[in-house]
Design a protein around this nucleic acid. Structure first.
Length: 883
RNA sequence: GGGCGCUUAGCUCAGUUGGUAGAGCAGCACGUUUACACCGUGCGGGUCGGCGGUUCGAGUCCGUCAGCGCCCACCA
């Protein structure tokens, strides 16, 4: 037991204890016999640094893991990082560019080596930051989505899915990012409204008989037009169906076809069809019998104009950027009198979420996962309740996306990532296998093979995180113990990217859901409710808050503000408030130290005879129960509030104040002092344990400061909410005491009685029990309310009066206070009681209420009515006494 | 075009199965009591977005309107 410094400084405490825990393996004590509890961290990007969203996500995880550990479970928090293909490659490329260098100056192997180098040097930043936050992860088994074991898992999943027909190569339109020059998935496309134009064009009919009008937002794609479509029931064009159009500029002859895609209400009702550059047109083209291989393409990977297969694009357009080409083509059409008019218009435009480039639908060969098939068990698992989703409202989103899911494009034209395990021979035959040797065996002897240069979508590998981190495809002990995981905590922003895909892959490869519960939290926003972003400059740096207020304060803030289903608007004032809370606890511990209160020897509550001690033991048990319930329901806000109010309102404001007279009593009361010290020490211990998941650092510090301990707090025992600890009689007594003291204080304050003035306290209409209570708590009442119990009837004259239950407490104040003020005060109190009484009377007078309301409700209304009636009468009597 | 969420005290938010509203911060007043001014005590403050319905009774359930936010979707 060491004396606590007067001021609480979080910094040094945090550094000391984190190191102690980690060094001593306390994040993962050996508990082979214990019930497992498992959480996996959403692996942060190697490029990442801890932002406030991580702080929230990881705080919630740490609370659950520390709680489970305190419950004696074999708690495992799997930690690691994600290689984050596109993001990481972009970072390293940008570094090269800063040195006037570029990726393509290197071989693939050289470049990848540079990325690994960079990862080694700066990739661990976020894990250091996680330590600052207090995250009790299993660092001894840190994983990476491209480490050797994980890579094996990725390859196996690819090959197995392929062999099962659930993964295939296909030529179709894909979302192409011309900035990054790679395909991306539907989810990586952000559609935003952007200012654009609607060009109305005249396409000459081939027979020279006139024009057909088409409207388009993308005139440049006319270089690859293959048809003009009209609605089959559109009378204006019926006669033209089957005839031909001679396209301007290229002179290509294309048919006018009938297709329901053409909307007669929109534009002219006729629409140009460019199957190679538009998702709708692709489908129209297929319906018109054009095979994907025959669809014309006019753009290269950087979205510059290239020659189409029929060679009709004029040479001076070749090599132009798509937007330059647009301008050029519009002016060419205008010159030929084929531009009818131009409308300004907002266009729903697709952008790449990483590059910000306008996405180009582009015809390429890519690898696709049959997501619809994998989605079915994931839908069923949530529908059946096998996976519990919290908050439930997300179930609809889950179903909506998974039911309508499209094939998942998993190949990326990047260098950094898991290279696709597929090999091609010179004839273009494809061999998917776990290794080149295996592929060669499939291909047969003497066949030269080239490996597919593409890599996999990062999410393809992170989808395997819940089981590949546990050793899969090996059948490890860890895997059988810790899969399925207990809870996944994730921001709702990655529900499709990650959560749904984990469910799909986990159910498919493990035959079992990845986690029992999926908990989705909101986003952390700034104090004005705006989304935080670097460009907006409103990001909150969690490390800065930790430096300023301590990790405990930040953690507690995030937990207390995490109410299900809502975004968090973070206000620094809240963090400051919870730093104050930690300080409050610190000072309470100092008080205990100064009064001979120390670590409790036992887990069970000490025997107590004094009501105040019996009461606080009961209150402790109630808090444990409230906390258990809240944590079981994943109500982080409720659990934080339960412990907060117990510590501050019950323990500090009342209990410690109430025991001061006992502790300070003159000698001769040894037994009471001993009992009180024991109880106070025990309660403080329970507080430290209960608060530890939320505020691990300050609690661990105080745990040791209060005395010698057989084990650190991080592996202490969670308290039990033993109902036997509750003593209703003591509870009522202390409740009465609190109401009495509060009542007297309020009266004094409202009547401006000088604080230094000690008043006499007389009784009016008090029963025997009240007199006994008053005698028992004379010292505490005297101290807290600054009154001295007096014998006999109150003297006549001015007095303040406080009604508690049946008794009226009279504080003679002749000459001290303004009698009129006290009368007004009592009249207000009586009026309030009467108002409630009358409302209850009205309800009770309603025969329908008596007949239809639940009997308990009627009973309660009667009891309340009686109480309010009595109360108003007592205030009436008090008023009468003042004349 | 679908789907979801939000609207409760000046601010940020709770409010479990319907029984006439709570917290933190901010505000105001006062500071006796050797744990704590990062504190203590007390006080003020809400027609629970509008309208309608169900019910003995609605912040809580249903409908509708208004405003705000998010997600999904191939209107050229």
């Amino acid at each position: 037991m060491s004396e606590l410094p007067k001021t609480f400084e979080p910094g040094p405490i945090e550094a000391r204890w984190y190191e102690h825990w980690e060094k001593n393996g306390l994040f993962r004590p050996a508990r082979d016999e214990a019930e497992p509890f498992t959480i996996v961290i959403p692996p942060p990007n190697v490029t990442g640094s801890l932002h406030i969203g991580h702080a929230l996500d990881n705080t919630l995880q740490d609370i659950l893991v520390r709680h489970a550990r305190l419950l004696g479970k074999d708690a495992l928090w799997v930690v690691g990082m994600d290689h984050a293909g596109i993001a990481t490659q972009m970072v390293v490329e940008r570094q090269l560019e800063e040195r006037q260098d570029r990726r393509t100056n290197y071989t693939r192997e050289e470049f990848i080596a540079k990325v690994w180098e960079w990862k080694a040097e700066s990739g661990g930043r976020i894990t250091r930051q996680l330590r600052r936050l207090g995250a009790s992860c299993d660092w001894a088994n840190e994983r990476f989505t491209m480490d050797e074991g994980f890579s094996r898992a990725v390859v196996k999943v690819f090959v197995d899915l392929h062999d099962q027909g659930l993964l295939y190569r296909d030529k179709r339109l894909v979302n192409w990012d011309p900035g990054l020059r790679t395909a991306i998935s539907d989810l990586e496309v952000e559609t935003r409204e952007a200012a654009g134009k609607f060009w109305h064009l005249r396409y000459p009919l081939a027979d020279g008989s006139g024009f057909i009008h088409v409207a388009t937002t993308r005139p440049e794609t006319m270089l690859a037009d293959m048809a003009v479509a009209v609605h089959p029931r559109d009378e204006r064009y019926r006669a033209l169906i089957g005839s031909q159009v001679r396209l301007p500029i290229t002179g290509r002859l294309v048919p006018i076809i009938a297709d329901e895609h053409a909307d007669p209400e929109l534009g002219s009702g006729a629409v140009k069809i460019t199957p190679g550059h538009d998702f709708n047109d692709f489908e129209v083209g297929k319906r018109a019998g054009i095979a994907p291989a025959d669809m014309l393409n006019m753009l290269d990977a950087a979205a510059k104009v290239v020659q189409t297969a029929d060679g009709l694009v004029p040479a001076d357009l070749l090599g132009l950027d798509r937007f330059e080409a647009r301008a050029r083509i519009v002016s060419m059409l205008e010159a030929e009198g084929l531009l009818e008019r131009v409308e300004d218009r907002m266009i729903a435009t697709p952008f790449g979420d990483r590059s910000g480039a306008v996405i180009e639908p582009w015809l390429t060969d890519q690898w696709y996962v049959d997501a619809a098939t994998l989605a079915k068990p994931a839908i069923e698992a949530v529908r059946s309740g096998d996976i519990r989703v919290v908050p439930e409202t997300w179930k609809k989103t889950w179903f909506n996306w998974l039911v309508n899911i499209q094939p998942w494009c998993v190949s990326r034209q990047l260098w950094w990532g898991h290279q696709i395990p597929a090999w091609y021979d010179e004839a273009g035959n494809c061999y998917v296998a776990e290794s080149e040797e295996a592929a060669r065996a499939k291909a047969g002897p003497g066949i030269a093979l080239t490996r597919d240069p593409d890599v996999l979508d990062t999410w393809f590998s992170s989808a395997l995180w819940p089981f590949a981190t546990l050793g899969w495809p090996e059948h490890t002990e860890a895997l059988s113990r810790h899969y399925p995981n207990d809870v996944l905590i994730s921001g709702f922003d990655i529900i499709f990217f990650w959560d749904a895909r984990m469910a799909m892959q986990g159910l498919h490869f493990m035959g079992e859901k990845p986690w029992k519960t999926l908990y989705l939290h909101g986003l952390v926003r700034d104090a004005q409710g705006r989304k935080m972003s670097k460009s907006r400059g409103n990001t909150v740096d969690p490390l800065g808050l930790i430096d300023k207020y301590g990790a405990d304060a930040l953690r507690f803030t995030l937990a207390a503000m995490e109410s299900q289903g809502r975004d968090i608007k973070l206000d620094e004032k809240r963090v400051e408030g919870y730093r104050n809370f930690a300080t409050k606890l610190w000072n309470a511990a100092r008080f205990c130290q100064a009064n001979g209160i120390g670590a409790s020897a036992a887990i069970a509550p000490p025997a107590a005879t004094l009501p105040v001690n019996r009461w606080i033991v009961g209150e402790t048990a109630r808090t444990v129960r409230a906390l258990d319930l809240a944590l079981a329901e994943l109500r982080f806000d409720e659990s934080a509030n339960a412990i907060y109010h117990f510590v501050w309102d019950r323990f500090c404001d009342w209990y410690l104040e109430l025991i001061k007279p006992i502790l300070n009593a003159p000698s001769g009361e040894g037994a009471e002092i001993a009992e009180t010290r024991a109880v106070a020490g025990w309660v403080l211990d329970q507080i430290l344990v209960m608060l530890h998941p939320f505020m691990p650092f300050v609690t661990e510090e105080l745990w040791h400061a209060m005395g010698e301990r057989p084990y650190p707090l991080i592996v202490a025992k969670w308290p039990t909410s033993d109902a036997r600890a509750l003593d209703p009689k003591a509870g009522h007594e202390i409740d009465w005491l609190i109401r009495l003291v509060s009542g007297i204080r309020a009266a004094r304050s409202e009547l401006n009685v000088p604080v230094g003035e000690r008043l006499a306290l007389h009784l009016q209409g008090a029963g025997e029990a009240t007199r006994e209570r008053l005698a028992r708590h004379r010292a505490a009442i005297g101290r807290l309310a600054r009154v001295d119990a007096a014998e006999g009837a109150p003297p006549a004259g001015g007095a303040a009066q406080v009604v508690v239950d049946e008794a009226t407490f009279v504080l003679p104040l002749e000459g001290v206070i303004d009698i009129a003020a006290e009368k007004a005060r009592l009249a207000r109190a009586r009026e309030a009681a009467e108002k409630e009484r009358d409302a209850l009377a009205k309800r009770l007078a309603n025969p329908d209420f008596i007949a239809r309301a639940r009997p308990e409700a009627v009973e309660k209304a009667r009891a309340d009515h009686a109480e309010k009636s009595a109360l108003s009468e007592r205030y009436g009597a008090a008023l009468a006494r003042l004349g």
